[in-house]
Design a protein around this nucleic acid. Structure first.
Length: 512
RNA sequence: GCUCCGAUAGUGUAGUCCGGCCAAUCAUAUUGCCCUCUCGAGGCAAUGACCAGGGUUCAAAUCCCUGUCGGAGCACCA
């Protein structure tokens, strides 16, 4: 049955439904779905990074989406460093700032910044309260033994200890009287719960390694994420939590603690993992850390690294990354971020304001290498516009002294013509480029290709850093005039950010 | 093994809750044409998807069942 027929039938069967359909108005368009039970002004969220490394691109999703929701609901967000594992996921002292910088780069400002490692005593207080409620017990079972019991749905002998004993043993954990692995504090949930992941999970354990932050270096008894983050979310008034599907069971686990305390659990949204195309380096903190340490990457902002710092250095605006992240939505499926989407957003943001310039690459894989030719006849200089869509910004003056450089792929066959952009038409004779005029009709009707060029002598050496490695070339003289952080479009090559304006200009390639 | 969750074009997404303006939205991508002194921008067009099979119904992307595929948890990691 086709559409018209369906509609006809519907009109016969239920005319009121047709009216309803017709009356359906369009809702406000938001790139992100509405948060459940969210009210304007009543939304408080948190970004809870582990500062064990700076951020890769995937981490930016959290801040991008939380920040966007904050703006949408006129709400707030807290940046809480969940740095409660001084050993396995040991914090990197530089990462705290790097992460805050990344959030700032994305265009957001946390309403509050806290470190879990400053709040350990608060967690202890809640642990003691939980023990009073008979909601937790100390357990000295070796991990494997407990795991076996748990999988069989059987309680261990420590489960029925008196609260007094549990208090004593927990205090001993806090006082550092146990070594790592000797004693833990478990939350009493339901040892026969059908989901084994929820049965009597560990809330506190002993870590022998001191925390790298001086302020927290004395603690040996550390909360696990589910306890710490569960308590903090409540204490900080978090109304909505966004987190990965790897933490799918956290809400259910923490639910037991919330029940003991009579708290109400925040709304939760789970999303899948992000992957990014176009990179050889995987989106994994540990891999990036390794490659940086091994010298395979020049640092976290190496253009080949899939990191926030790298995108920033390439001149990608945080806004472009946020837009692309927000478009991914909050689906529980894993998603692939197409870098082309980030580039498309960035191009739209910067194209209008970015000056044009020529870069002749001297690279066998890109343009075939620079070749020099004398120019015979013609004016002394070319005058291409600073921006083709904005005549009022004037022109660049590029001298043609002893000759020019072009990329060999652009050099026409002998006898053929080529249009040097902003200069005029030349014919390739035996060993030179002979000026044939400035009538643009040859380009419009004569199939003469338009190419970029630079003077053979008065040019500026440029090292362009790209995702595929460095490309050397020669820029037009004006390239030397740009300051660090300014953007430039090398015509027919792509957009770059000037990173170092020195003798040899270093530019980071952003995208075409 | 136990427990959760998911599946719409190359990619992402809208629609799914409350079946019917859905032979399916928008963006990106790719290709072609127009325009342009850039391979950028702009304009136009084309390409391309409801995981499979059953069921319910006048009507199924939408509801139900089965299957397939994929993901996650069952850590003294976060």
């Amino acid at each position: 049955m086709d559409q018209a027929e369906k509609r006809e039938r519907l009109a016969e069967l239920a005319p009121e439904r047709v009216e309803e359909l017709d009356a359906d108005e369009e809702e406000d368009e938001h790139p992100l779905p509405d948060l459940p039970n969210a009210e304007e002004g009543g939304v408080r969220m948190r970004v809870a990074p582990n500062p064990n490394s700076p951020w890769h691109i995937g981490h930016a999703r959290m801040a991008a989406v939380v920040g966007t929701y904050k703006e949408r609901y006129d709400g707030e967000f807290v940046c809480r460093f969940d740095d409660t594992d001084p050993d396995t996921k040991r914090p990197d002292l530089d990462a705290y700032d790097a992460i805050l910088k990344a959030i700032d780069y994305l265009g957001f400002e946390p309403d509050e910044v806290v470190r879990a490692s400053d709040r350990v005593d608060i967690y202890y207080d809640h642990a003691r309260e939980l023990i009073d409620e008979m909601g937790a017990y100390t357990c000295s079972c070796p991990a494997e033994e407990f795991s076996d019991l748990k999988n069989a749905g059987e309680a261990c002998p420590h489960r029925e200890k008196a609260a007094g004993t549990v208090h004593e043993e927990f205090s001993a954990m806090v006082d550092g009287e146990y070594g790592a692995g000797e004693m833990v504090l478990r939350v009493r949930t339901d040892i026969e719960h059908k989901n084994p992941a929820l049965r009597d999970w560990v809330a506190f354990r002993v870590v022998d390694t001191p925390h790298p932050r001086e302020e927290a270096a004395a603690y040996r008894c550390w909360p696990m994420l589910d306890f710490q983050s569960g308590v903090d979310d409540h204490l900080m008034g978090v109304t909505h939590i966004i987190r990965g599907i790897d933490l799918q069971d956290s809400a259910k686990r923490q639910g037991f603690v919330y029940d003991y305390f009579g708290w109400e659990y925040p709304e939760v949204v789970h999303w899948g993992h992000v992957e990014v195309d176009e990179y050889d380096v995987p989106l994994s903190s540990s891999t990036i850390v390794e490659r940086v340490a091994a010298g395979e990457l020049d640092g976290w902002d190496d253009p080949r690294a899939p990191t926030v710092a790298s995108l920033r250095r390439r001149g990608i605006r945080g806004e472009a990354l946020v837009a692309a992240m927000v478009e991914l939505g909050t689906s529980t499926s894993n998603v692939d971020l197409a870098m082309s989407s980030v580039y498309a957003h960035n191009r739209e943001l910067i194209d209008d304001d970015t000056d044009r310039a020529f870069l002749v690459r001297d690279d066998p894989d890109h343009g075939g290498g620079a070749v020099e030719r004398q120019v015979v006849g013609g004016p002394d200089a070319g005058e291409p516009p600073v921006h083709p869509d904005h005549e009022d910004r004037g022109t660049r003056s590029i001298p043609v002294d002893s000759g020019v450089l072009v990329e060999s792929a652009d050099l026409p066959e002998r006898g053929q013509r080529v249009w040097l952009k902003g200069y005029g038409c030349v014919r390739h004779t035996r060993d030179a480029l002979e000026y044939t005029g400035d009538d643009i009709e040859v380009v419009r009707d004569g199939n003469v290709p338009v190419v970029h060029w630079v003077p053979a002598e008065a040019n500026v050496p440029v090292r362009m850093r790209t995702m595929d490695g460095d490309v050397w070339g020669y820029g037009e003289p004006g390239v030397a005039e740009y300051d660090r952080d300014e953007m430039l479009q090398f015509e027919r090559v792509g957009f770059v950010r000037i990173d170092d304006p020195g003798e040899e200009v270093v530019a980071y390639f952003a995208h075409k």
